[in-house]
Write a protein that binds this DNA or RNA. Structure first.
Lengths: 147, 147
DNA sequence: AGTGTTAGTATCAAAGTGATACGAACAATA
DNA sequence: TATTGTTCGTATCACTTTGATACTAACACT
């Protein structure tokens, strides 16, 4: 895809996709949220080829969703930690998951519970201002004019 | 990617990604939500090669996010409409957009307003049960055991 | 008859992906 | 000291996907 970046494209979705618009990147972010940090953990968890993994980790690091940290000096070893931007990707993951749960829900599914209440988490998207569920109210789109 | 489908994989995110885990599909869904229905509208809006577009529309149709409808008999013409599953993808789009707005927000951005209140929509993900923002409370993950 | 519109298909070079083998830099064990 | 193991990759190369471009089918319109 022509990754026509940042300030050109007025669509925030396009911009996000140029950063993490492929399945591997999203799965890496998922695993990072699950606590994985190391090359081999990611590789084994996803069954991804090491070449792919190297490239995806590098991109996510360049784009500021992960950061590399040296955790051992002597065999020089790095691990990958979520940055704030990476952590803020969690709502996206949950909404993707919510869709999958609803429309591809056959068989056994991983579940997420609120640790405090013990209830299963049901992620929905709402407008923080009005409190209304996204998609339930009419909206108006304003596209900025070029230049 | 090895699109290891449905009932095998317990992760709802993986399952969603095997359906719409590439940038073109997500952009098509975005445009479909914006009201586009026809081949040439999509093609011009995204600058996608017709071969790609044909394939992606076919996949999204097979997977049940779009449906083909004949809108003209005599030059036989079809258009693509969102199904319920496709419409339910909107929260995903909004959360992806919200991330882009926050972390790739330079320059002019498309905006969405609540038609009733006139306020700009600020999409956030919450747990419908507790009302807490996703990511603000500790959670417990339950992975089903195999077989 | 000629031009325009819509929804594609055909072709093919270029780029991306995936599987596998291998390498570097050590630690631990025999 | 030699061997094996661990971790984080790189090298190679066959295979697949993509993207650009040209073209076709089936009409309508002038």
């Amino acid at each position: 895809m022509d990754t026509e970046n940042s300030c050109e494209n007025p669509c925030p979705i396009s911009r996000s996709l140029s950063v993490a618009g492929d399945a591997w990147s999203i799965l890496i972010l998922r695993d990072a949220h699950a606590g994985l940090t190391r090359f081999d953990q990611f590789r084994k968890s996803m069954g991804i080829a090491p070449t792919m993994l190297t490239r995806r980790l590098a991109t996510l690091t360049e784009e500021g969703l992960l950061e590399k940290r040296r955790y051992s000096e002597h065999p020089p070893r790095e691990e990958y930690l979520l940055t704030e931007a990476g952590r803020d990707f969690l709502p996206v993951l949950f909404m993707i998951g919510a869709w999958g749960r609803k429309y591809r829900g056959g068989g056994k599914l991983t579940q997420f519970f609120d640790a405090e209440t013990g209830t299963e988490i049901q992620a929905i998207a709402v407008d923080e201002v009005t409190g209304a569920k996204i998609g339930t109210r009419p909206m108006r789109v304003v596209v900025p004019d070029e230049r």
